[in-house]
């Protein structure tokens, strides 16, 4: 499903080159729930961003469902992300000026879905994360756990085949973290969604099918 070959990422300043990822090769199967672990600054989020087509590698190739993205235009990448990928961030990144329902509708907005269908699908996604009663609330009126559930609803509203979760439980206490983790596991098991999750939490990682460990930008076997 996802194959990463000899992936490297460097950041350049005038005088300095910082190697964030060094020659990473890995493969993730369809329907797999994989966690990426490692100490801070080891390149976990960078790797996730590459796989999620949010950032471009310095070297190497990423293939998702057989498609390569090296020479794709911004427009094509945007369309692919919109139709196939979902994202969950540690800090939720909900748009504070929009109510929950509009936040969840966001991916469908760029798909040209009609307003009625958008509304219907967003309500379904919110029902899936048990937030139907909060659709007209604004993000700042919700708890951290509820916000992350809204973020999950937003990530799944477009029925993506792959979910990228960057420390989805990182800002939550253990109870709320477990709740979120359960939703992700259900999505993986029931909807066969491939999930790539970055986490610091060993317990959460243990619940996934496989752990990929990084250290100083290198893959650790």
């Amino acid at each position: 499903m996802i194959s990463v070959n000899n992936l490297s990422k460097s950041y350049f300043t005038d005088t300095l080159e910082t190697l964030a990822l060094n020659n990473i090769t890995l493969h993730i199967e369809k329907g797999e729930f994989v966690s990426i672990m490692g100490p801070s600054g080891c390149g976990k989020s960078t790797l996730l961003n590459m796989i999620g087509l949010l950032d471009s590698p310095t070297e190497g190739v990423i293939r998702i469902e057989g498609q390569e993205f090296r020479h794709k235009k911004e427009k094509e990448l945007a369309r692919y992300r919109n139709q196939n990928l979902g994202f969950i961030f540690q800090s939720f990144h909900l748009i504070s000026d929009l109510p929950v329902i509009d936040n969840v509708e966001l991916p469908l907005l760029y798909r040209g879905t009609s307003a009625r269908e958008r509304r219907h699908k967003a309500e379904e996604a919110l029902a899936q994360v048990e937030l139907s009663h909060r659709i007209f609330h604004y993000p700042n009126q919700l708890s951290g756990g509820q916000r992350q559930r809204v973020a999950i609803a937003r990530a799944i509203v477009g029925n993506p085949t792959i979910l990228m979760a960057d420390e989805p439980t990182g800002n939550l206490d253990s109870v709320l973290g477990d709740e979120v983790m359960k939703i992700l596991m259900d999505l993986n098991q029931e909807n066969n969604v491939t999930i790539v999750m970055v986490t610091h939490d060993e317990n959460m990682a243990q619940k996934t099918h496989r752990i990929i460990r990084l250290y100083d930008g290198n893959l650790v076997n």
């Binding site: 369309r79 992300r81 994202f87 990144h93 748009i95 760029y110």
Partner: peptide, 16 residues
């Protein structure tokens, strides 16, 4: 910045 990043992540193009 966050809104821009999120919108782009979920498929917004530069022209959007």
């Amino acid at each position: 910045s966050s809104e821009i990043g999120v919108r782009k992540a979920f498929g917004a193009r530069t022209d959007h």
